[in-house]
Nucleic acid binder design. Structure first.
Lengths: 135, 135
DNA sequence: AATAACCTTTAAGTCAACTTTAAGGCCAAG
DNA sequence: CTTGGCCTTAAAGTTGACTTAAAGGTTATT
């Protein structure tokens, strides 16, 4: 069965060799076999595992969360657990959206009020909006 | 005119003394006067300046952006500049909201599909959704 | 045989926005 | 007059997710 060096894996997955070693240390990638010269040798499905990590990151999962998911997969664990992790993530994402939306509302309202003319002193609406109140 | 020690300022503003010194080094707070014993002495309006910083942070402005706004205020600069900074921020916030909303959509759809029953192997929808494609 | 292009390890650097630590000076209360 | 609580500085530590560097071994090509 064909195996890959860390450099070949890096090229196929788009993840830098050093990042792959980092993921190994962080227990996201399994400890691979070694050649006589102590070179890492990866099975082909290591590519898919790395791409899973990359995609999960793009979804906003942290490495800690991704590790949880990978451990579940490796242990062929319970789907309910995976669902819980994803549900927690969804909750956090919705909270972030709420927070940003509040900011968006105030900021766009303020920008609409501001003609962009005149000096800063004596009531620039942007500065006043920030100074006055949080949230 | 009454002045404040750094500790008093910290208490009134809710910002730790060390953070105030940090802001001074980062040129967000002006260099204050000193007593004979080399203690910092702040005018009362330093409280408002710190609160401006705190609120701007809550709005999601970075210290770099806040520094820009403060420099404009200090120089009694052009309002159009402040408007530009705020408009850039608004754009960034909207981009973040878009990104998070895409994630939210896929994740909530995926969660709805997942019964939470069965093992991970052979098609857990959550894992598959992440594995399949980035966005 | 030499050289380039890999691979190995450990350690340190990056970014933001601070916090913590260390080592010491100043001042009010008991 | 000493103890505790402020204040001073510079330097190092924190978090997350790596990247860069240093120093050296291996393999492939010329």
């Amino acid at each position: 069965m064909q195996t890959l060096s860390i450099g070949e894996l890096a090229e196929r997955s788009g993840v830098a060799s050093q990042a792959i070693r980092f993921y190994e240390k962080e227990k996201l990638m399994p400890v691979p076999q070694r050649t006589d010269a102590n070179y890492r040798r990866y099975p082909l499905d290591a590519v898919a595992r790395l791409q899973f990590i990359v995609h999960a990151k793009q979804w906003g999962f942290t490495l800690d969360e991704i590790r949880e998911l990978l451990i579940l997969q490796d242990a062929n664990g319970d789907r309910a657990q995976a669902k819980r992790i994803a549900a927690e993530k969804l909750y956090k994402i919705r909270e972030q959206i709420k927070h940003l939306s509040r900011i968006e509302a105030v900021l766009s309202r303020t920008l609409a009020e501001c003609t962009g003319e005149g000096p800063m002193q004596e009531g620039c609406p942007i500065v006043e909006a920030i100074a006055e109140k949080a949230e």
